[in-house]
Amino acid sequence: MVIEDPKTNKLIEVEKLPDGTYKVTIYDKKTGEKKTITMSKKDLEKLLKAL
C-alpha cells in the first residue's frame, strides 16, 4: 500500500512482513531521502490516523 501525504510531500509505503510486523518506508519527494522502519500493527494504525 502506498499513501501520498500532500501536506508534507512524502510517500509512505507499507508492506506486511511474514512475522506480522509492518515495514514502513517514507520517501521525501523534495530531498530524495528514504527512511525505513519496522513497526507493529498498533503503531502503524496510530501513524495512519495522524495523517
Rank of each mutant, 00 (worst) to 15 (best):
M1Y: 01
M1Q: 06
V2F: 00
V2C: 09
I3F: 07
I3V: 09
I3H: 06
E4D: 05
E4K: 00
E4P: 00
D5H: 01
D5F: 05
P6K: 05
K7A: 14
K7T: 14
K7L: 14
K7Q: 12
K7S: 14
K7W: 04
T8F: 04
T8K: 06
T8M: 03
N9K: 07
N9R: 01
K10N: 15
K10M: 14
L11A: 10
L11Q: 14
L11I: 11
I12W: 12
I12F: 11
I12L: 05
E13Y: 08
E13R: 03
E13H: 08
E13I: 05
V14S: 06
V14R: 01
V14Y: 12
V14C: 03
E15W: 11
E15C: 03
E15V: 10
K16F: 12
K16I: 13
K16A: 15
K16R: 14
P18F: 12
P18K: 12
P18L: 07
P18E: 13
D19Y: 02
D19E: 07
G20F: 05
G20W: 03
G20D: 09
G20S: 10
T21R: 12
Y22T: 01
Y22V: 02
Y22N: 11
K23D: 06
K23N: 05
V24H: 00
V24W: 01
V24L: 10
V24K: 00
V24G: 04
V24F: 01
T25I: 10
T25D: 11
T25G: 08
I26C: 12
I26Y: 06
Y27W: 12
Y27F: 09
Y27D: 11
D28M: 01
K29L: 12
K29G: 05
K30L: 14
K30S: 11
T31C: 03
T31Y: 07
T31N: 08
T31I: 06
T31R: 04
T31D: 04
T31E: 14
G32E: 11
G32Y: 11
G32N: 07
E33N: 08
E33D: 09
K35D: 15
K35Q: 14
T36E: 08
T36H: 09
I37N: 13
I37A: 11
I37L: 10
T38L: 12
T38F: 07
T38P: 12
T38D: 11
T38M: 12
S40Q: 13
S40W: 02
K41Q: 12
K41G: 12
K41P: 04
K41Y: 08
K41H: 14
K42M: 10
K42Q: 15
D43T: 01
D43K: 04
L44K: 02
L44A: 05
L44H: 01
L44F: 14
E45K: 05
E45P: 00
E45R: 02
K46A: 13
K46N: 11
K46F: 05
L47V: 09
L47C: 04
L48H: 02
L48Q: 02
K49V: 11
K49C: 04
A50G: 10
A50M: 08
L51T: 11
L51G: 04
L51N: 07
